[in-house]
């Protein structure tokens, strides 16, 4: 179970700045159970976006957004709407956001922060990884995680050690920042790279007291359902 929390609506609206037509996409798996995705997440977020003057072009539910096969199949029926939308706002974990970004050539914004991996890293273990940092940066990096794809977890750009697009640590591993750069360039969002990212707040990786008492964190110790 990947435990997610809704990003504050102000942060989401900030990431949607300058965009009018938003395609909403929610996961019906872990995020549904956490109350951050599913039908409930879609309804709440749709209302918030419309209140803020956005046009929600579609509100679409997929069982497991970490499963790229499911995502591709489901979204292929929505391509016309997606093409007309400015971006996709995704209500899911870090793996789900990266999976959507991988299969659709569209700007993707995360609506949630992933705070606990709970023993399972996505239901479709492919290359996308989430470290449950609790401060999802996928919005700024074009849906490719700098924390897990960069060997140094750098937030402000490449270290300068990459050679031929490969990491200084492993010549067979892609440089995460090369992937991010290529992706942002393709999306026409290179200006994202110029934004200063402040240091991570590592305290967000500590599970909260409330979370530890729930079955989302520890089935045996849970005092609340």
């Amino acid at each position: 179970m990947l435990f997610t929390k809704n990003k504050p609506i102000d942060e989401i609206l900030d990431s949607l700045d300058g965009e009018k037509n938003i395609f909403l996409l929610a996961c019906n798996g872990c995020a549904e159970a956490c109350g951050t995705g599913g039908q409930q997440g879609l309804d709440t977020t749709k209302a918030e976006l419309e209140k803020a003057g956005k046009n929600v072009t579609a509100a679409c539910l997929v069982d497991f957004l970490c499963n790229k096969l499911l995502v591709t199949t489901r979204l292929s029926r929505e391509m016309e709407t997606i093409t007309k939308s400015d971006s996709i706002l995704v209500l899911t974990c870090g793996v789900g956001v990266q999976a959507v970004s991988k299969v659709i050539n569209k700007v993707v914004h995360p609506a949630d922060d992933t705070v606990s991996l709970g023993g399972l890293q996505g239901l479709w273990p492919a290359e996308e990884r989430c470290q449950a940092c609790g401060q999802c940066a996928l919005d700024y990096t074009g849906g490719i995680c700098p924390v897990t794809t960069c060997a140094k977890g750098l937030l402000n750009g490449p270290c300068g050690g990459a050679q031929n697009g490969k990491c200084e640590v492993d010549p067979e591993k892609d440089c995460g920042w090369q992937l991010i750069y290529d992706r942002l360039k393709k999306l026409g969002r290179l200006e994202n790279l110029a934004k200063l990212r402040t240091p991570r707040d590592h305290s967000k990786m500590l599970p909260s007291q409330e979370l530890r008492k729930t079955s989302f964190y520890d089935v045996e110790q849970a005092t609340e359902s």
Partner: peptide, 17 residues
């Protein structure tokens, strides 16, 4: 800064930062 990096553009963006 690494002027020999390829691509150079992200190096220059980071240099500005």
């Amino acid at each position: 800064v690494n002027p020999g990096a390829d691509p150079l553009e992200p190096q220059i963006i980071k240099m500005q930062k």
